[in-house]
Each structure stands twice: as C-alpha cells, then as structure tokens.
C-alpha cells in the first residue's frame, strides 16, 4: 500500500474533501430547517406554548414518513424534486438535496427530544413572570437544551457521513464513491481499507468533539 502512496494520497485527499463539502453544506442547511422543525414538534403539542393539533400532526407525519425510508431509496425517489431544485440529480450538487431531505427530519427528531427534556416547570416559571412565548422558546428553551442539541448534532453528523457514502451510487464523489469504484468494482483492497480507516477516524473525531463540548456546556450548567 505504501508503494502506491503517491498515486493514492491525492485520491484520498480529493475524496475526503468532497465528502466534507457534502457533509458540511447539507448539515448547515439541514440544521437551519431541522432545529425550527424540532422546536415546532415540541411547542405545538397540546398544553404547550403554541398548541396546534393540525400543525403537530402534519409535521409529525412528514417526519415519520421520511425517517422510515432508507437513504438510498429516498435519494432515488426524490430525483425529480432534486432536479427541480438544483437542476441535476448527480454529482455533489445532486447529492446535497437528498442529504438535506434525509437528515433534516432526523435533526428535528433529535432536537425534539432535547427540547422535551427541558423541565416544563421552567417554562411555566417564565410564563408566570410575563415572558412572551417567543422569548421563552429562544432565550430559555434553546439555551437550556444546548448540551442536548449539541449531542444530537453529533449523531446527525455521523449519520450524514454514512449517507454521503451511499451517495457515491449517483456519482456524488467522496469517500463512498472511492470505495465503490476502487474497492468494490476493482477489488482494490488498499483503497477499501484506506477508506474504512479514514471514516473511522473521522467519526471518532466528531464523536469526541461532540462529547467534549456537550460536557463543557453541561459543566457550566
């Protein structure tokens, strides 16, 4: 494997870069969609700040439907939608749309859980002191749920890396694509193992960072 270093290093480098681009772009956009969605899944519950049966049921159903589809199927199923949004269904751009659609509901569910862990008594305390419902969501609930949200972002990120690898199927590039082309189609074991090792290291780093910061947030808590 070492003797092929010159040949493989740029290959791994580019693939890692492509993976990171896909992961980061889709994570950022999915977070922007997922956190408000998770908040809505909590506050529209009966007896919560903005009880609304219809919105809650609607969002809950959508999230459940998407969450029940494996990424590979979801990706293929929404090709027309992807083409509508970014004009193509292949390559990195074609992969980012399904990645967002896949991971945003996932983030929403995790954020929902983190939010539900905020003691309702705290919300009542601030409601009783005349805080507005919006202030409570933004300044109290989001803040109190921070360690939980950070941990769920970690989980989402790891899930996302898994999904990017599958996006290799539509020629999205990245580590998945590398493993598929060299590892699977040409049975190039060094490339296969290299990919595996990079993925393991990546996930380890993310998980450790996530745990570290969540702990730090909790310590100050």
């Amino acid at each position: 494997m070492l003797d092929r270093m010159d040949e493989l290093a740029p290959l791994f480098g580019i693939s890692l870069y492509e993976t990171l681009v896909m992961v980061i772009v889709s994570l950022v956009i999915a977070t922007i969609i997922g956190i408000p969605l998770g908040v809505l899944l909590v506050v529209t519950r009966p007896n919560h700040l903005y009880p609304n049966k219809w919105i809650f049921q609607l969002l809950n159903t959508i999230v459940n439907i998407i969450r029940s589809l494996p990424f590979i199927i979801l990706m293929l199923a929404i090709i027309p939608f992807t083409e509508l949004i970014v004009g193509t269904s292949i390559g990195i751009r074609g992969a980012i749309v399904p990645l967002i659609v896949y991971i945003a509901p996932y983030i929403a569910r995790l954020v929902e859980t983190a939010f539900l862990e905020v003691n309702y008594g705290i919300i009542e305390a601030y409601r009783g002191m005349g805080a507005s419902r919006f202030q409570i969501v933004i300044r109290i609930m989001l803040r109190e749920a921070r360690p939980g949200i950070l941990l769920c972002m970690t989980i989402a990120l790891i899930g996302l890396i898994g999904a990017t690898a599958m996006a290799g199927v539509i020629g999205a590039g990245g580590l998945g694509d590398l493993a598929l082309r060299y590892g699977y189609q040409q049975w190039d074991l060094p490339v296969m193992f290299g990919t595996v090792i990079i993925l393991i290291v990546l996930v380890q780093i993310i998980q450790s960072l996530g745990n570290y910061f969540a702990k730090k947030l909790k310590m100050s808590a």
Binding site: N119, G121, A125, M129, S132, R146, L217
Partner: peptide, 22 residues
C-alpha cells in the same frame, strides 16, 4: 396579561431555575 404577570412573582417547590445560567 403579560404586563400584569410581570408584577406577580412565583416560586416553586422544585425551584425551576435555569441550569445553564449562574
């Protein structure tokens, strides 16, 4: 109602403090 509530303090058996604030 919120303005009225601002003039009504409330305390609880379980305190209900913000754990992430000092």
């Amino acid at each position: 109602l919120r303005n009225v509530r601002k003039k009504i303090g409330i305390i609880f058996q379980q305190f209900h403090l913000l754990s992430s604030y000092n």
